[in-house]
């Protein structure tokens, strides 16, 4: 299951950032997870609870910010929300669309002490 390796990465990033800041304990971890990131937030939370116990994040709370899928039309510059995974500009019908958000898989912020 790949949520497991993703959570291992989350904990590694969080622990190393905490250490860099001389923190002894991680209290909160904020993630940004995009609509098209391919991971299931519930499984991330489940794995986080299972893996955090032997780390300085053992008492940490995981908070997930869901990011909607949005794109920018490369023809007319229109920014819009992409629904039903149809990559087509809702103004000019162009299909050359750059993804602006929705693929995030980020550790955004930590609270430590």
């Amino acid at each position: 299951m790949h949520e497991l390796s993703i959570v291992q990465n989350i904990l590694e990033i969080a622990e190393s950032e905490a250490r860099k800041n001389n923190a002894a304990k991680i209290i909160k971890v904020w993630l940004k997870i995009g609509e098209m990131s391919g991971v299931v937030a519930d499984s991330i939370t489940f794995c986080f609870e299972a893996l955090k116990s032997n780390t300085i994040a053992r008492d940490a709370e995981l908070l997930i910010d869901h990011v909607p899928l949005t794109g920018r039309c490369k023809n007319c510059g229109n920014n819009f929300q992409i629904s039903n995974y149809i990559f087509k500009c809702n103004t000019c019908n162009n299909t050359d669309i750059e993804i602006i958000s929705g693929r995030e898989l980020f550790v955004d912020e930590l609270e430590v002490e």
Binding site: I6, N9, I10, E12, I13, A14, E17, A18, N21, A23, L31, L105, F106, V107, D108, E109, L110, E111, V112, E113
Partner: peptide, 14 residues
């Protein structure tokens, strides 16, 4: 204390 991280979770793989 809050720390802004903004780190790609898959950066080690990348």
């Amino acid at each position: 204390m809050k720390i802004k991280v903004v780190s790609n979770i898959l950066k080690a793989n990348d």
